[in-house]
């Protein structure tokens, strides 16, 4: 445990130092302009203090982001306003629900496609190229169209965002599950043939259990992609709720601290989601008796 903590702490410390340094150099021009206008001469310590405490810095200092994060989450929760519109918990929840719905749709579609691809040659030849092509289109280009099209048939709110999120997350699941379902060796398949086992028995008894390690790896990537999809889905719509909307309004009004705190909140959310899958993975593989 200690062995992994030390390197991690070292890297984090280095990043924070770099961040503070960058904040000085990026924000100093504005600080000096202000000082010049007021006819003042800033000492180095005054300059540093100023670059780390501006209202609208180009790059907010880490402690400013942390303060903003606390103000918009823990502090509001303590006041009983966790779900007010200024709370990141509220916005995070909006994004999370779209992410989860998209993840479920994307994973389900991905697994079904993989099962089809492994069992039907026609699907193997026809679906895979399209799946790959779908991922070469920038999501930022296709997201507004999905929203507009769905809106025209009366679907709005959560579902369009979830679909964009599913669009990103089905792909790693397809690729991983195709590989996983095909992972049994020739000998293992021959063994089932000697039992005269059908396609169904081969799938349930051999292919599906063999694919579990691949599935979880795909789910982790798919989950991260889902979150990105949900945030991107909030950008082009002028949404007023969700982490994506927070980033967007922050950039409209030059609220860099707000952008960064939404950004960090999204990163924390992603870490929690992927970590949860990791825990489920451990428990499942352990229950399946896989060698620890």
């Amino acid at each position: 445990m200690m062995r992994s903590v030390l390197p991690i702490l070292t890297v984090v410390t280095a990043l924070v130092l770099l961040w503070y340094g960058a904040a000085i150099s990026m924000n100093s021009k504005w600080a000096q302009d202000q000082a010049a206008r007021a006819g003042l001469d800033l000492s180095f310590t005054e300059l540093v203090a100023d670059t780390w405490s501006q209202d609208r810095p180009r790059l907010p200092a880490p402690h400013q982001v942390v303060q903003e994060l606390w103000k918009s989450t823990g502090e509001m929760a303590l006041k009983g306003r966790a779900f007010s519109k200024r709370s990141l918990i509220f916005h995070g929840w909006i994004t999370l629900s779209a992410t989860m719905l998209g993840f479920v749709i994307g994973t389900g579609a991905g697994i079904l496609l993989a099962v089809g691809i492994v069992h039907y040659r026609v699907m193997d030849m026809s679906v895979m190229p399209w799946a790959i092509a779908s991922q070469t289109i920038p999501i930022i280009a296709i997201a507004p169209m999905i929203i507009v099209v769905l809106n025209s048939i009366g679907i709005q709110g959560l579902v369009p965002k979830a679909i964009i999120s599913a669009y990103l997350s089905f792909f790693p699941v397809v690729v991983g599950m195709v590989k996983g379902l095909r992972s049994p060796s020739i000998d293992q398949l021959d063994l089932l043939r000697t039992y005269n086992a059908g396609t169904g028995a081969t799938f349930w008894k051999l292919r599906l259990p063999s694919s579990m390690p691949y599935l979880f790896t795909s789910l982790k990537i798919g989950m991260a992609a889902s979150l990105v999809g949900a945030i991107v889905g909030e950008l082009p719509t002028g949404a007023i709720r969700g982490l994506g909307a927070r980033m967007l309004t922050g950039s409209y009004y030059g609220q860099t601290i707000q952008i960064w705190s939404a950004l960090i909140a999204a990163a924390i959310l992603a870490a929690l989601l992927v970590g949860t899958i990791g825990l489920i993975q451990r428990a499942t593989l352990k229950r399946m008796g896989m060698q620890p």
């Binding site: 000998d187 000697t194 259990p209 579990m212 896989m290």
Partner: peptide, 17 residues
């Protein structure tokens, strides 16, 4: 079910006892 077949590798399923 006339025969049982044993391969060179035991090929036991790791997820089954």
């Amino acid at each position: 079910r006339a025969y049982g077949y044993v391969f060179q590798a035991a090929g036991l399923y790791p997820w089954r006892t």
